[in-house]
Computed example of a mutant assay.
Amino acid sequence: MDWLVSLWSDSNSVGHILLVYAIVITVGLLLGRIKIFGISLGVTFVLFAGLAAGYFGFTVNTTVLHFLRDFGLILFVFFIGLQVGPSFFSSFRSGGVQLNLLTLLAVFLSLAVTVGLYFAWLCSE
Rank of each mutant, 00 (worst) to 15 (best):
F48W: 00
L73I: 11
L29I: 09
N61F: 02
F71W: 09
Y55S: 07
G50L: 05
S90D: 09
L101S: 14
E125C: 04
I39F: 14
F71I: 03
T59V: 10
V46K: 03
L99T: 11
F108E: 09
A112K: 08
F89C: 00
F56C: 00
L73T: 08
V97M: 08
F76H: 10
W8A: 14
F76C: 07
D70N: 12
I80E: 03
S40P: 03
G38W: 12
G85H: 01
S9V: 05
V97C: 01
A120E: 13
Y118S: 12
L117F: 15
L122Q: 09
T59G: 06
G32I: 07
S13N: 11
G116T: 14
L99D: 06
V43Y: 09
L111I: 14
W8C: 09
F56L: 04
V46E: 07
L18E: 04
V107T: 12
G42L: 12
S9F: 05
G96L: 09
Q98D: 14
F45G: 01
Y55M: 06
L117V: 12
G95M: 10
V107R: 06
H66P: 00
L41M: 09
L29H: 07
F58C: 01
L117W: 11
G72D: 11
D10Y: 01
V113K: 04
L65V: 02
S87P: 00
L82I: 13
F89T: 06
G85N: 00
L30A: 06
F67Y: 13
L51Q: 08
V27P: 05
S9Q: 07
H16L: 00
F58R: 00
G116E: 12
L4E: 03
S110K: 04
L51V: 11
L47F: 14
L19V: 13
S9D: 02
G32T: 07
V46S: 09
G57D: 05
F71E: 06
W8T: 12
I74F: 13
F92T: 03
T63S: 12
L104V: 12
S90V: 10
F76P: 02
Y21P: 00
S91F: 12
A52Y: 04
K35V: 06
L41F: 08
I17E: 03
V107W: 09
G28D: 02
I25K: 01
L102P: 00
Y55F: 09
S13H: 07
N61G: 03
E125Q: 14
G28V: 01
L68D: 11
G15V: 00
L7S: 05
L4A: 07
F45C: 14
S9A: 04
L111H: 08
S6R: 15
L102Y: 11
I34C: 04
G85K: 01
R93E: 05
W121T: 15
G38T: 08
W8K: 09
G38P: 05
V46P: 04
G50K: 03
S13T: 04
T63P: 01
V115R: 12
V64Q: 07
L29F: 08
G38V: 08
N100T: 15
M1D: 05
T59H: 11
T62K: 13
G81N: 06
L109A: 15
S40F: 04
T63L: 10
